Amino acid sequence: MFSKLTKVLMTAALALTVALPGLAFAGPAEWPTTLKLGFIPTEGAADSAKRAKPIAAELEKDLGVKVEIFTASDYNGIITAMANSHIDLAYFGPKSYVEAAEKANAEAVVMELNKDGQPGYTGIIITKKDSGITDMDKAQGKTFAFTDPNSTSGYLVPNVIFARDMKIDPEKYFQEVRFSGSHGASILAVKNGSIQVAATNNIDMDRMIEKGAASLDDFNIIKRSDMIPGAPIAVRKDLPESLKVAIAGSLLKIDDDPEALEILQNGGYRHTSDKDYDMVRYLKRLKAELAKKK
Rank of each mutant, 00 (worst) to 15 (best):
A108L: 04
F146E: 07
F70R: 11
I55S: 02
A246S: 10
L290K: 09
T200E: 07
F162H: 11
Y75N: 12
A185Y: 03
K66T: 14
K103H: 08
G184H: 08
F25P: 04
A189F: 04
G22P: 02
A100Q: 02
S3C: 08
L216A: 13
V67T: 10
S151T: 10
G132N: 09
G184P: 07
G120W: 06
I126Y: 08
L290E: 14
F219I: 03
F92L: 00
I228V: 13
M279V: 14
T17W: 01
S48L: 03
E43C: 00
A52D: 06
Q118S: 13
L156F: 09
T127I: 10
I203F: 01
A291P: 11
T11M: 12
P41K: 05
F144E: 05
F144I: 07
E176P: 07
N159D: 11
G132P: 05
N159F: 04
I133N: 03
P21W: 05
K36H: 08
Y155I: 09
I87H: 00
R51M: 15
A46V: 05
D148K: 08
L216V: 06
L283W: 15
K115A: 14
L156N: 07
R178V: 15
E176Y: 11
G93V: 04
Y155D: 13
A26W: 00
T200D: 07
L35N: 01
R285Q: 15
F219C: 04
A288C: 09
N192Q: 11
K284P: 01
Y121E: 13
D47S: 12
E176I: 07
P32N: 05
S131A: 12
H183F: 14
M279W: 11
N84I: 00
P54Q: 06
K95V: 03
S153V: 11
M10I: 12
A26D: 12
I209M: 09
K138F: 04
K287L: 15
K294V: 13
K36W: 01
P54K: 04
A145T: 10
D274H: 10
D130W: 05
M208D: 06
T42Q: 12
A248G: 10
M208E: 15
M1I: 14
H183R: 08
N105R: 09
A19Y: 01
M166R: 14
M227Y: 01
G268V: 01
D204I: 10
S194N: 11
S3E: 09
A214N: 06
L239D: 02
M1T: 14
A15K: 15
L14T: 12
S250P: 03
Q140E: 15
P28H: 03
D74A: 11
A288M: 13
K223Y: 12
K293F: 04
T127Q: 11
D137W: 01
S242R: 04
K244D: 05
D238R: 01
P258W: 01
S151D: 11
S3G: 10
I161M: 13
M1C: 13
D130R: 05
R281Y: 05
D256W: 00
S85V: 05
W31T: 00
F179I: 08
T127N: 10
N76A: 13
M82N: 03
V177I: 08
